[in-house]
């Protein structure tokens, strides 16, 4: 029983990370129809940025946080500006290769800057772990869950109540119509990249203390984020959130009850099941195609 509860807690914690990664991917897709295979690398940059600014330079945590998110967002904007926008008639396959190429470049840069050895970071606070019915929760897990909730909540409010957010939603629904009503779709795309890379960095920052940080940690994280986004329905904010949590929980139960080696496979098995059974994701609305 304690075991099961422990799996649940760990699942929610890791699931929140997946949720944040998935939200970043999903929001970018919604606004620009771009699937960014370099998204995991933004998370890696987030973690590595924290390693340098907080771990090595001993900057105060909030300052390190802000600087890291800003820095990674800058990288995201440069990436959009110089790699995505110049393509006039983007074919999905070319975009896949360009973003994969970018992920290779980002990983290469990280390898040169931070080396190949994994780096560990201490938890954000030195509070002791909490025990509930025999299961242990480390404080960092709580921070991760809180961060995911705050991020998803503020994005929700942003899309619902701000003009900028509404304009982005309009762009996502129908780019041309939005453009005709005077919404600058290029700026909206840039804004989406900003949100996406920023949230990627946040995911990286919050898991940095609970994982070994290496230059190639982003690939798996990015792919798992995809699975989560697909499970919830590509383009949906809360779908991505729920997909991330579900994936994290199932993974921890799978690792605990079946085998830890197959943990990584669970995400992809789940992905295939979702694609076969309800391709639009768990929370998709049914829609009819018109010929």
């Amino acid at each position: 029983m304690e075991d099961l509860l422990q799996y649940l807690f760990s699942g929610i914690s890791i699931g929140s990370v997946y949720a944040v990664v998935a939200i970043g991917l999903s929001m970018l897709y919604r606004s620009t129809e771009l699937i960014n295979f370099a998204h995991g690398e933004f998370a890696m940059f987030g973690a590595m940025g924290l390693v340098t600014l907080w771990g090595q330079f001993k900057l105060p945590l909030p300052l390190a946080f802000v600087l890291t998110v800003a820095g990674v967002s800058m990288v995201g904007i440069l990436f959009e500006r110089f790699a995505i926008r110049p393509i006039k008639d983007p074919h999905p396959i070319s975009l896949v290769i360009i973003t994969v190429g970018a992920s290779i470049v980002f990983r290469g840069v990280a390898m040169v800057v931070w080396g190949k050895d994994p780096v560990a970071l201490p938890s954000f606070s030195s509070h002791g772990s909490i025990e509930i019915a025999g299961a242990v929760i480390v404080p960092q897990s709580l921070y991760i869950v809180a961060a995911a909730l705050v991020l998803a909540g503020s994005l929700h409010l942003f899309f619902r109540y701000t003009l900028q957010g509404k304009a982005m939603t309009a762009c996502a629904v129908n780019k041309k119509a939005a453009w005709l009503t005077g919404i600058p779709s290029a700026r909206m795309g840039l804004f989406a990249v900003l949100i996406s890379s920023g949230s990627g960095a946040i995911a990286g920052i919050f898991i940095a203390p609970v994982t070994m940080n290496t230059y190639d940690m982003g690939t798996m994280l990015g792919l798992k984020g995809f699975c989560a986004a697909m499970i919830g329905g590509l383009g949906s904010l809360w779908g991505a959130f729920a997909g991330g949590l579900l994936l994290g929980i199932l993974e921890c139960f799978g690792a605990g009850l079946i085998s830890s080696g197959c943990k990584d496979a669970i995400a992809f098995v789940l992905l295939l099941l979702i694609l076969y059974l309800c391709p639009g994701g768990l929370f998709a609305q049914k829609q009819a195609d018109r010929f």
């Binding site: 699937i35 999905p92 896949v96 792919l223 995809f226 699975c227 697909m230 590509l234 085998s259 080696g261 197959c262 990584d264 496979a265 992809f268 098995v269 992905l271 295939l272 694609l275 076969y276 391709p279």
Partner: peptide, 28 residues
Amino acid sequence: RPTLKLSGYYLGMGTLGFGMIVHILFRE
């Protein structure tokens, strides 16, 4: 049979998932 019913990005993700599962099987 089931995967090729998908199209576009969904087909890409489906085949990606399949490739990852086989890769993990080789490893495990």
